[in-house]
Simulated scan of single mutants.
Amino acid sequence: MISAREGDRAPTGLLVEEFVLCEDYTAAGIDGAEWRAENRAWSSSAEASRAIRADRALRGRVTPVSRQEACKAFRLLGGGELPEEAGLRTLFQERRSLPTSSPLNMSGSSARRYRILFAGDLGADGLARAREALRLEPTGDPRVVGAASTDAGGHGFTWELRRIGAGIAWCVDVTARLGSGPVTALGALLHHHRQAVRDQGLIPVTIERFA
Score class of each variant (00 low, 15 high):
A73V: 11
A73C: 08
A73Y: 01
A73W: 01
A73D: 15
F74G: 00
F74E: 00
F74C: 01
F74Q: 00
F74M: 02
R75S: 15
R75D: 15
R75V: 10
R75Q: 15
R75L: 14
L76G: 12
L76S: 15
L76C: 08
L77H: 01
L77G: 07
G78P: 11
G78C: 10
G78R: 09
G79N: 06
G79A: 06
G79V: 00
G80Y: 06
G80C: 10
G80F: 09
G80N: 04
E81D: 15
E81N: 12
E81I: 14
E81A: 15
E81K: 14
L82D: 03
L82H: 09
P83H: 00
P83N: 00
P83K: 02
P83V: 00
P83M: 00
E84P: 10
E84D: 15
E84R: 11
E84L: 09
E84V: 10
E84T: 09
E84Q: 14
E84N: 12
E84K: 08
E84Y: 05
E85M: 11
E85R: 15
E85N: 12
E85S: 13
A86G: 11
A86C: 08
A86F: 12
G87S: 08
G87D: 12
G87P: 08
G87C: 06
L88Y: 05
L88F: 07
L88P: 03
L88N: 07
L88Q: 04
L88K: 01
R89T: 13
R89K: 13
R89W: 11
R89E: 15
R89F: 10
R89S: 13
T90M: 12
T90F: 03
T90E: 14
T90C: 06
T90R: 15
T90I: 08
L91Q: 11
L91F: 09
L91V: 01
L91C: 09
F92N: 00
F92Q: 03
F92E: 05
F92Y: 13
F92G: 04
F92K: 01
F92I: 01
Q93F: 06
Q93V: 11
Q93M: 13
Q93Y: 04
E94K: 03
E94N: 07
E94V: 10
R95Y: 03
R95A: 03
R95G: 06
R96Y: 03
R96A: 03
S97P: 08
S97Q: 13
S97V: 12
S97K: 13
S97R: 14
L98Y: 03
L98T: 01
L98H: 02
L98F: 04
P99R: 02
P99Y: 05
P99N: 02
P99S: 01
P99T: 02
P99D: 10
P99C: 02
P99E: 12
P99K: 00
T100C: 09
T100L: 10
T100F: 09
T100Y: 08
S101V: 11
S101I: 05
S101Q: 12
S101W: 10
S101G: 13
S102K: 11
S102N: 07
S102R: 13
S102Y: 10
P103A: 05
P103W: 10
P103Y: 01
L104N: 09
L104P: 02
L104D: 11
L104S: 13
N105F: 06
N105G: 12
N105I: 12
N105S: 12
N105C: 13
